[in-house]
């Protein structure tokens, strides 16, 4: 109970902070929308057939990059004024701190994802709503996997200078299985294919991925935070 209350305190603090300044959120949204609208349309010929085959890849590439912008800041925002020290010395559970930050990051990432979807549909002429329920589930599960790994990475590299340089080597390789599953599922669901046996297997992979890394992150949170 106390754990949940602490988690909620941290999550609401982070969300309130981010929604007040909107720095990371705006950067991520701008990045995602420019990428979808302009860059990817030049990179891939946006015919209906082509787009339908690559929709999952397009979307998740955008989400992964934009998400990194948000999640990277997760622990960095605690560095000003040594707030992280105060949090660590307080009775706040390390796992609660981590979970609270992950929840806030997840919420922000979902905002980006849900904003991108209709824009993608309009500009690439794709009807994405045919399997809306499962699609939203996949967006959420994929976002959670991204969030957990990105938040852990943020905690590990909180006071390192060249944090961004290590993103490609540390975060993205870790996320590959989850991204792969999310991409397969998204492409199929956007094309209107219902969840059949094969897709269920990918879904199970994505859920297992999320569970494994959430458990690891919560278990190792204290080891990371305490010097």
């Amino acid at each position: 109970m106390r754990f949940l209350r602490q988690t909620w305190l941290v999550a609401s603090k982070d969300l309130r902070s981010e929604l007040r300044t909107k720095e990371a959120l705006n950067a991520a949204l701008a990045f995602a929308l420019v990428m979808i609208l302009l860059l990817l349309s030049f990179a891939f010929d946006p015919t209906a057939e082509e787009t339908r085959r690559t929709s999952g890849g397009l979307l998740w590439l955008v989400f992964a990059f934009a998400g990194a912008l948000i999640l990277n800041r997760s622990f960095v925002r605690e560095l000003t004024n040594d707030c992280l020290d105060v949090l660590v010395s307080s009775p706040l559970d390390g796992a609660a701190l981590f979970l609270g930050k992950s929840l806030a990051g997840f919420f922000l990432l979902m905002i980006v994802e849900l904003a991108c979807l209709p824009v993608f549909g309009i500009f690439y002429n794709v009807a994405w709503h045919r399997q809306l329920g499962p699609l939203l589930l996949v967006l959420a599960l994929g976002a959670w996997g991204l969030t957990v790994i990105g938040t852990m990475f943020s905690a590990l590299t909180v006071n390192l200078r060249l944090r961004e340089l290590m993103l490609p080597a540390l975060v993205y390789p870790l996320m590959i299985p989850g991204l792969l599953a999310a991409i397969q599922l998204t492409t199929a669901l956007v094309a209107g294919r219902p969840l059949d046996a094969e897709l269920y297997d990918w879904l199970k992979l994505l859920v297992s991925f999320d569970i494994i890394f959430t458990a690891l992150a919560l278990g190792l949170a204290d080891a990371v935070l305490l010097g």
């Binding site: 590959i176 299985p177 494994i212």
Partner: peptide
Amino acid sequence: VFNIFAFADVPVVFFSIRW
């Protein structure tokens, strides 16, 4: 900590890519 994460990822990577 990162090594533990990486090791947990290895089987998932092999499995997912083979699939």
